[in-house]
Write a protein that binds this DNA or RNA. Structure first.
Lengths: 164, 164
DNA sequence: TTTTTAGTTCTTAATTAAAAGAACTAACTA
DNA sequence: TAGTTAGTTCTTTTAATTAAGAACTAAAAA
């Protein structure tokens, strides 16, 4: 049942299309559909701060799906909320400003993979030196790569400053 | 039913553990369980080239799961196979040597995300200049970041050469 | 020509994930 | 004190993944 008190915010066809495309991209990166669409809405909507019911009715989600989706995105810090004095509602908004750090940090989970490769190299038979060498090369490359990421970040920061 | 003609290759407990851990890592990155374990086996096993039945019996998979898993990994080029004259079997082996390029190339799928952000920026209301600016910053950062990746790759190559 | 080998494809079953809807709670309001 | 608001949590339904098993195919061998 749809208990629609018309909190839905109006969206153009293009906006709806972009929300879906953004959602698909999220899905491909481990974000559940509803959560991905919520985050997309908050980045596409003209109004930047939306309430629970505005999100729910705009995206045609159930209360539970809205609640879980919002909480997933809050937990992963991709969205945040503000409150207003004398108003019990929370106003959710995208955290785009912090997605930059997010973007470079996400690769650090490859550290675990790097460690795993090192462990594998440690227990491999000595009969296959070329193959073992390839594994060694892979993990030292990944290690090197991850070490370079903060440098990219710094380089960009200084470059931006000098341009502006 | 298990029609085991004992093609299974013997593995130590540590090897089995690493296969599972490797498998979990794959799962977290969109590789189906059976496929992830096949690729793990081929990187951990002492014997580098395994047949369909060796894979199937070592990992206790059905023929269909083995077939689909192998084909998934072949399609994504994480494994390959060799053939031998006078032998109809294919000998599957890990493609670790090419995982390095893979590792840096995988980020290029973020180009699509970058384009999507650009599109979103293009249709945003002009009423929210700060937020729009944040989107602009995000996509130019990602663009910059992706452009730096080949440089990391080159830097590593030259560095490796001088060391050896 | 029949059988075996080396797989692939199709159908079904089991597991898991996503979302809906209802019931609930805690804070505020009339 | 009863009702409303702003959600959360629990239970059920629906949909999507994953793998099993059987049936199939194409090439080679007997």
């Amino acid at each position: 049942m749809k208990i629609c008190k018309n909190n839905a915010i109006p969206l153009s066809d293009k906006q709806l299309e972009l929300i879906e495309r953004f959602g698909v991209f999220g899905n491909e990166h481990g974000i559940p559909p509803a959560a991905a669409r919520i985050s997309a809405l908050l980045i596409i909507s003209d109004k930047l701060e939306l309430t629970f019911d505005e999100i729910r009715e705009t995206l045609n989600l159930s209360k539970s799906a809205t609640s879980n989706g919002i909480n997933f995105m809050l937990l992963t810090r991709r969205i945040a909320f503000v409150t207003k004095t004398g108003d019990r509602k929370r106003y959710f908004k995208s955290n785009v400003e912090s997605w930059k750090e997010d973007f470079s940090n996400q690769f650090q989970n490859h550290n675990a993979f790097c460690e795993l490769l090192k462990e594998i190299e440690g227990i491999r038979t000595t009969e296959t030196p070329d193959f073992n060498q390839a594994i060694e090369e892979l993990h030292s490359f990944i290690h090197f790569f991850l070490g370079e990421i903060p440098k990219i970040y710094q380089k960009w920061e200084t470059q931006r400053k000098t341009i502006q």
